[in-house]
Design a protein around this nucleic acid. Structure first.
Length: 230
DNA sequence: AAGAGTCACAACCGCCTGTGT
DNA sequence: AACACAGGCGGTTGTGACTCT
């Protein structure tokens, strides 16, 4: 559908939309050699792109096991709740959403969920103001909303960051209880919010490294090229 | 039918952090 | 301790597609 028209900067580095040919080159190279150095990778892969652009393209669109679009209601609920706890820490949110990227979540938030979240908070406020005599636990808080999707949520296991990229995940009630516990923990302990808790990669990415020689390929995996609609 | 306005999202930019020397 | 570099992150932009008038 979209996109920026291709252009080159003064150093001859191409910018703008990636072509299917470029995607193919990038995927083939990383499949064979891994991303041992993003800055040097485009040169070895025969791409007139900067390393950052290659990295972004790979992480957000070409990586295996990425979902594209088609957010489920459960996923959207998860994003809203995670955003409530984490703010604009998109990478941290993405770490809890297997198959989703920070960029994609960020875009979806700004285009769809932001408004809904604001509406929800307004609704919540009005409920709270109309029921001052009720127990706080009966408010539509994050915790109660968690319970609301426990029974139906699939493929968004909070623990799946420990699983292999090729392993599809099905969330269990047990896992989601843990998820709730974690959030309860954050509410009272801000150390976690600033610590390394989130630093574990959300996918065990293929950064198997052939030191300085790309010839030392150590692993080949199946890569599905996303179809291009342009 | 066409122009204007809005949406959706791929991609870029600049800053920050971690690591090596 | 200071510097350089690479990678990662969040904010923002640019533009095609879609909707409205």
């Amino acid at each position: 559908m979209m996109v920026r028209t291709p252009s080159c900067d003064k150093n001859g580095v191409k910018k703008g939309t990636w072509t299917p040919e470029e995607d193919k080159k990038l995927v083939e190279y990383i499949t064979r050699y891994g991303h041992w150095n993003w800055r040097l990778l485009p040169k070895f892969a025969g791409l007139a792109r900067c390393g950052k652009s290659c990295r972004l393209r790979w992480l957000n669109y070409l990586r295996p096991n990425l979902k594209r679009g088609n957010y489920t209601k459960e996923e959207e609920e998860t994003i809203i709740k995670l955003h409530r706890h984490l703010g604009n820490r998109w990478s941290a949110i993405a770490a809890r959403m297997p198959g989703r990227t920070d960029n994609e979540i960020k875009n979806h938030w700004h285009t769809n969920l932001k408004k809904r979240s604001q509406q929800d908070s307004v609704a919540t406020e009005s409920i709270v103001s109309n029921s001052n005599d009720q127990s706080p636990t009966e408010q539509p808080t994050a915790n109660t909303t968690f319970q609301s999707f426990n029974s139906t949520t699939q493929d968004c296991s909070p623990l799946s960051q420990h699983s292999s990229p090729s392993t599809s995940t099905v969330v269990s009630t047990e896992n989601l209880v843990l998820m709730e516990d974690e959030f309860a923990f954050w509410d009272s302990d801000t150390d976690l919010m600033s610590g390394n808790f989130w630093l574990e990669p959300y996918m065990l990415d293929i950064s198997y490294v052939p030191a300085s020689e790309p010839e030392y390929s150590s692993q080949v995996f199946d890569v599905e090229l996303w179809s291009h609609d342009t």
